Structure formats: C-alpha cells, structure tokens
Simulated assay, not measured.
Amino acid sequence: MTTDHKISKARLWTSYVLQGLIVLLFFMGAAGNIFQSEDAVTEAVKLGYAESSVLCLGIALFVSTLLYAIPRTAIIGAVLLTAWLGGAVATHMINQDPMFNMLLPVIFGIVIWLALWLRMPSLQRMFPLVSKN
C-alpha cells in the first residue's frame, strides 16, 4: 500500500488491533452459525429466523469477515459487514429488544470503519475529523 502520508506506528497498530478483534469476534459468530451450534440456532429462531437459514447466515458472515480481513478487499468487507450490522439493528428493532441490543451493532460498525480510517489516508480525506474551512 502506497501512501502519501506517514502513518505513525501507534496508529497503525491500533488499527490492526481493532480490525483483529472484529475479525476474531465475527469469525467466532460465523463458526457458530456454520456449525449450527445450539446457541446460534436457538438465538436465530428466537429472533424470527428459520432454523434452515442459520447456515446461510453463517456463510454470509464468514465471507464478509474474510473480505474485511484481507487488506486488498477490506473496504468491500467493511461495506458488507456494515450491511450485516444494519440487519442486526433492524432485527432487534422488530423484536423490540432493549436499546443496548440495537446500539451494539452500531458500535461494531463504527469500530469496523475506524480501524480502516486510522491507516487509510484516502478514507481520512473522504471523512475528515476536522473541516478545512
């Protein structure tokens, strides 16, 4: 990756740690669905999903997370994971779950993009923290 800005080692490592945590958590969630653990199936059914959809959900989450973990495809992975998390928010809203259950996917979405933003000058230019007025 060529950059026109020097990224500090602290910023780079922070981004990798955040991304690594997301990847680990989401791969664990995908594995639960793919292997159809009792907890994954029970939760999915409780939230209104058919038991037969659990495997497909797991595969979609696995592929999205894998794309996010690979540097060249991290942006498309982040887009797909953001869509996944939007579905999670909608599911919790439909089920009238507590506000925390709706906020957690939003927080994960912020961390997903923050991890990439910290090391990608192109994202920093697109979404500056400070306006250049």
Results as ranks from 00 to 15, higher is better:
33 N>D: 08
55 L>I: 11
53 S>H: 14
57 L>F: 15
42 T>Q: 12
121 P>E: 04
39 D>Y: 10
127 F>V: 04
117 W>G: 04
10 A>N: 06
84 W>H: 14
13 W>C: 08
44 A>Q: 13
4 D>Q: 09
19 Q>D: 04
74 A>R: 13
47 L>W: 15
17 V>C: 02
67 L>K: 09
84 W>M: 13
77 G>S: 13
32 G>P: 04
114 L>H: 11
131 S>F: 07
59 I>K: 09
101 N>R: 03
120 M>I: 08
43 E>M: 15
18 L>F: 05
83 A>P: 02
109 G>D: 07
32 G>N: 11
48 G>L: 12
85 L>P: 05
31 A>T: 08
78 A>C: 05
21 L>Y: 11
54 V>R: 02
125 R>I: 10
123 L>M: 08
38 E>G: 05
43 E>W: 15
5 H>Q: 13
95 N>P: 06
97 D>H: 12
110 I>K: 09
105 P>I: 07
57 L>M: 15
107 I>L: 08
130 V>F: 12
94 I>A: 12
99 M>F: 14
107 I>E: 01
8 S>H: 06
127 F>L: 06
49 Y>P: 00
121 P>G: 05
123 L>A: 04
61 L>A: 08
60 A>E: 08
9 K>N: 07
26 F>R: 03
129 L>P: 05
81 L>N: 09
53 S>T: 15
16 Y>M: 02
72 R>M: 05
92 H>L: 06
60 A>K: 11
53 S>Q: 15
56 C>T: 15
117 W>E: 01
46 K>E: 09
130 V>Y: 06
35 F>N: 02
120 M>C: 08
41 V>A: 12
100 F>Y: 04
126 M>Y: 04
119 R>H: 07
3 T>K: 09
2 T>W: 07
83 A>H: 06
11 R>N: 05
30 A>R: 13
85 L>F: 14
27 F>N: 02
21 L>H: 03
67 L>Q: 11
95 N>I: 04
118 L>I: 01
93 M>T: 07
53 S>W: 14
105 P>D: 05
20 G>P: 00
105 P>Q: 07
63 V>S: 04
80 L>I: 14
40 A>V: 14
59 I>V: 15
35 F>I: 07
106 V>F: 07
83 A>F: 14
25 L>D: 00
98 P>W: 03
96 Q>N: 14
18 L>R: 00
29 G>I: 11
78 A>Y: 08
111 V>C: 03
84 W>D: 09
34 I>K: 03
69 A>S: 14
51 E>V: 00
93 M>D: 02
38 E>P: 02
20 G>E: 00
92 H>R: 11
133 N>K: 07
108 F>M: 10
114 L>F: 15
57 L>T: 15
116 L>D: 06
30 A>E: 11
71 P>G: 03
4 D>E: 10
68 Y>I: 13
22 I>S: 02
62 F>D: 07
26 F>I: 05
28 M>H: 01
127 F>P: 01
3 T>Q: 07
3 T>C: 02
34 I>R: 03
55 L>S: 04
43 E>R: 14
5 H>M: 08
45 V>Y: 00
11 R>D: 03
